[in-house]
Design a binder for these strands. Structure first.
Length: 420
RNA sequence: GGAGGGGUGGCAGAGCGGUCGAAUGCGGCGGUCUUGAAAACCGCUGAGGCUUUCGGGUCUCCCUGGGUUCGAAUCCCAGCCCCUCCGCCA
């Protein structure tokens, strides 16, 4: 059911969805444009039929030519108007968010999310220091030089800090591969069409970096690439589910949040993330949403970090998801739950925009797949959680056991090993 | 960056500006034959929209967007993508 169909058949559902999500979209305008467009299209088709009849079977008489020339003018005029109407309608349709799954809790913002799981904070033997202090004193996180190089909200990792992040990436990808995902290494820049397909455009526009000259965009997550991978494709029976995992840098302008979370690396313009995307049959997507959430939690469990899982309420769902869960790790010094993953069931929305379908049986009718995505997980906040939860009295940072084999056996980063 | 060539149905590949939604081959589906299968032969086989007294009717789509024309898959312009050669380069 595309947004246009939804609006035609049940505008009240769309109104309710917009209200529940706290989104605004020009619904009435779309309805009006669509009414006019359909009327014009009917006129145009009648005229086209007339012209087709006349031009079948060879050169017409001069008399007919003259009449057809006039007809041609009318066709051109009407199709010009129709084109303008439909273009405007379709642009506005891009602002219609996904439907909301009936299971999604009511609510206005993240405070109304439902807590599904909440671990107790880890007992620390020290008064927790914030990650930027730990990182600086161990010489593994250099924020001033990141700012010098690239501006505010950029940072540099150094020595074992850089290696730790690299180990996390490799380890997390391996976990997904073990879970049956296929690793993808996509470009970190993408085209406008790809972002339209994943529904990051138009509504995420202000958060995206771009090169205007070439109309090429830096990805805000691997999601558009993993969704775009199969744009304009139809899966044959047996091909689903498709499970992908990719590591990419993520670029976000974060203009809206200037002034929030300024210290440290919780909110930055450039970060790394391991991302999962699953394509499946419609009836399978609830199951995959759970599994993908579990895979994000699995990372925290294996790192022995306190985890919280919340189901996003209607007002916190965002544009694309019809249902979703967030996964947080506890930051003892930050004294808050740090969102490291967001799992979303996007239903058929991205598949509709990207024209991705599947057949249940050979020769059957093609249906849109459901597409889900989840971080697995984002690195800066994971690094924060590790630094804050694994700090020791002597100023050292313990390396979580799960990672040691990925760091050539290193079990801690000691003071004095690295200096800024 | 320079010079050429090209983008047609699931694939391959034709297509003097009119009767082309598009030859032909392969693939797929159905049938004949066969114990069964293969081979051979026969038939069918793109998608989407609007409409329907459900027989059908009609429009759109030959990369995308403009243009020329009574009429465009066919001609012109722009863009995107692919290929070949040259240059540059991690």
């Amino acid at each position: 059911m595309t947004p246009l169909q939804r609006i035609r058949e049940d505008p009240d559902e769309v109104r309710a969805t917009l209200a529940a999500r706290g989104f605004d979209a020009p619904l009435e305008k779309i309805l009006e444009l669509d009414r006019k467009a359909r009327e014009l299209r009917r006129q145009l088709e009648d005229l086209n039929a007339e012209r087709n009849r006349a031009s079948r079977g060879g050169p017409p008489s001069d008399e007919v030519k003259a009449r057809m020339r006039e007809l041609g003018e009318r066709i051109k005029a009407i199709s010009g108007d129709l084109n303008a109407l439909e273009t405007e309608r379709d642009e506005k349709l891009l602002w219609i968010p996904n439907v909301i799954d009936p299971r999604v809790p009511q609510g206005k913002d993240e405070n109304d999310n439902t807590v599904v799981r909440k671990d107790a904070p880890k007992k620390l033997a020290v008064e927790p220091r914030p990650h930027w202090e730990i990182g600086e004193s161990l010489g593994i996180l250099d924020i001033p030089r990141g700012t010098k190089l690239s501006g505010s909200r950029f940072y540099v990792l150094r020595g074992a800090g850089a290696a730790l992040q690299r180990a996390l990436i490799a380890w997390m990808i391996d976990l997904k591969i073990e879970a049956g995902f296929t690793e993808i290494y996509p470009p970190s820049v993408t085209r406008r069409e790809t972002l339209l397909g994943s529904a990051h455009l138009p509504h995420f526009d202000e958060n995206l970096y771009r090169d205007e000259d070439d109309d090429i965009w830096l990805v805000p997550t691997a999601e558009p690439q993993l969704v775009g991978l199969h744009r304009d494709e139809t899966f044959e029976p047996g091909a689903l589910p498709k499970r992908y995992v990719a590591f990419t840098p993520c670029f976000r302008r974060e203009h809206m949040s200037a002034g929030r979370d300024v210290r440290g690396i919780k909110r930055v313009h450039w970060f790394d993330k391991v991302e999962m995307v699953v394509y499946c049959a419609p009836e399978e997507s609830p199951k995959w949403l759970e599994r993908m959430t579990d895979l994000a939690v699995d990372v925290l469990e294996k790192l022995e970090l306190p985890a919280r899982v919340t189901e996003r309420c209607a007002g916190d769902l965002g544009f694309t998801a019809l249902r979703g869960f967030d996964v947080d790790a506890w930051g003892p010094a930050a004294n808050e739950w740090l969102e490291v993953s967001s799992a979303s069931d996007c239903g058929p929305l991205q598949a509709e925009r990207s024209n991705i379908r599947f057949r249940r049986e050979a020769g059957g009718k093609a249906e849109h797949v459901h597409i889900l995505n989840a971080s697995g997980v984002a690195l800066p906040r994971l690094m924060i959680a590790i630094m804050e939860n694994y700090q020791h009295k002597d100023g050292s940072l313990e390396i979580p056991k799960a990672l040691r084999s990925y760091l050539r056996g290193r079990d801690k980063i000691a003071p004095g090993e690295f200096t800024l």
